[in-house]
Design a protein around this nucleic acid. Structure first.
Lengths: 206, 206, 206, 206
DNA sequence: TATGAATGAGTATTCATTCAT
DNA sequence: AATGAATGAATACTCATTCAT
């Protein structure tokens, strides 16, 4: 979303208004439940204009993804490729992700909700980018496992997917008006991911 | 509305066939992509019969989930209300949840995928039941925090939501044909939840 | 309607409850807009019960008519067949009709609204009865024309239909809470029918 | 909703054909008995085209009526606002109304038959316009009462509603093939309204 | 004197998309 | 860089009625 909350009708060029409207609607109602009619009404353009800029509703969805994903991937690359122990870099990566969610909450919601609906040609491209992002994350986990900083009895895929699931679902329950800011939430979640809930990790049950 | 609130729902042959067909189709194609026509054809009933038992496609979806949720809530209640330290009971609860998911993977996938499409009355009813489930979980976490078995620097809501998010999302990446069974995955995820990825929890970063 | 306002669920035998519910619904929403489902729910019977007593929705409608029409016809017959000048008898007939509308407002509404929908076998019977009623009225008008008490330059059909239209439409605008009782309204309408609005009937325009 | 409130409605060929077809079908079979399928087939357009111009079948019905009502209101305004005694102007207004009905018998029949099926927003809009028409009429009656040309012992509302009921119902019994033309009928009805049936208005009964 | 599950043809409406201008 | 009328196939849902029990 290129627009901060408050203004109802997005200003700017038609294309931007379409993207902003679609992002907001996809995020709030889901991709399937959003009609092209709603999009053009919210963006205050005609259907023709929308199809002038995007060849289909699906392309509109993938556009939103890819823009976001590209940025996120670049940031993760920078941090993961840095120096220092894996756990510290993981911590920094997640912290950074949360910092950016403040500004990109809506497209991330879209991503979480509607990713699996992208099919056909578009799917391939998006899935490839998405896999690249996930791999950067997973590589970091695997590196930590090799250097002994992370446990080896849990598969790196399990770790990565569990982490990302937790993050991607935040929009479902987190309320910015609540007791925590998004950044504080980030700190708590990283702490949880890294060290778990248990204070005395020795007493293995069963 | 054909179902009488609270009372045991009568099961005709037709009703069972409808539920089975819908579960399978929703799970495979998603809720929106499944048509009532497909459901009645698969269930070998007429449309009228389907609408005799369920007042809408949405009620059919929520029915499937509510039945399952009720069962899961009962199981969690039994385990969480037992004796022993909180971490052991949490471990047992999650293990049991995974065992149960093994038998009911389809309807759970259905729900995880289509939850956000349900609105209004139905959503409210399900959310209420779902909240009850979550509270059972959260109470267990809070108890552990009070007894010192769980860390107190992370809010119980954060713990609970993070756990459940990880679980609810597994249908997105887990493949039963892969290296792990669902139960093995369960073991790894509990381990992760309880003790984190890090082997040396002392070296707190930043 | 066999029921005075106040009680929601009509007491009494099933058949009576069905008639009462149908009358109320047909009167309020119209025949076409009322579903058998609404009728059986309001009457608190099953569909089977309804079809046990009435072979179709249409028969239910005609039943309501015929009961009312038979009574009304009998009363009109008694008055129209009496002695005295035609205008006095017409006056008495209309007065009597208004007196009875107090108790039969609902079925009269049904009659006014849905008469024209009755088709097929039922139609013939109802139309015959309805025509009989109208003819009693019209005979009275024609008699008055012959005896010179009524004007001859307006067709008796026009007079009759205009009278009855005015009466049948009352439910559309008359409110019992308003300045007039139904009987007072009756007096005013008869006065209007008999002598017109104009005080000086001599000055023929055009 | 495709129509923009207040502004002149653009007329494509297709829109005109839809209105014409709907008017004819509604008039002949009734609103409920007419399907959208029949309308689009008769108008030789697709369903999509119909829903492009009218947001629902109900809007199509109300459109037909509102257009007509607006015209009639304008005519009544012109005549009622003229000079001369109230009874002459009333006579002229009704005569003009019948002349107009002669040309627009179909849409008027449509409305008289189906009015009660329209609910909600559309009904409210039409009722407001309809009330405006009725008030013009009633004002004329009240003026006549003040100037002594009309009797004062009958409420103006009663007069107005009785008049208009008689007119609105003529579609139920009038047959153009019968002994009278619509204009002749108009003359007889005005005569009746103004001076009543009775030749000797002195002999007040009871 | 009911029950209630089931029918099946039919309904109004939606929606992503196109294309001449 | 747009418009907006039109498409056409598909969709969820309704409803009077039946019938074995």
């Amino acid at each position: 979303m290129t627009e901060r909350g408050g203004a109802r009708v997005p200003r700017g060029e038609a294309r931007d208004r379409i993207v902003a409207a679609a992002t907001e609607l996809f995020g709030r109602q889901g991709y399937e439940a959003t009609t092209t009619r709603q999009i053009v009404e919210a963006a205050q353009v005609t259907k023709g204009a929308m199809y002038h800029w995007f060849s289909s509703k699906e392309e509109l969805l993938t556009s939103i993804y890819r823009e976001l994903l590209a940025e996120q991937t670049a940031r993760l690359e920078a941090i993961a490729g840095g120096a220092g122990p894996a756990d510290v870099r993981l911590h920094d990566a997640v912290t950074d992700l949360f910092a950016h969610m403040d500004e990109h909450a809506e497209p991330l919601t879209v991503w979480a909700r509607s990713m699996h609906l992208v099919a056909g040609e578009h799917a391939a491209a998006v899935r490839a980018e998405r896999r690249r992002y996930q791999h950067l994350f997973q590589d970091l986990v695997e590196e930590g496992q090799k250097t002994g900083v992370f446990r080896g009895d849990v598969l790196a895929t399990v770790v990565t997917n569990t982490f990302l699931s937790g993050i991607v679902q935040i929009y479902r329950w987190f309320r910015p008006e609540g007791p925590l800011t998004r950044r504080e939430l980030g700190e708590q979640m990283v702490a949880l991911f890294l060290d778990g809930v248990r204070t005395v990790p020795t007493a293995e049950p069963a």
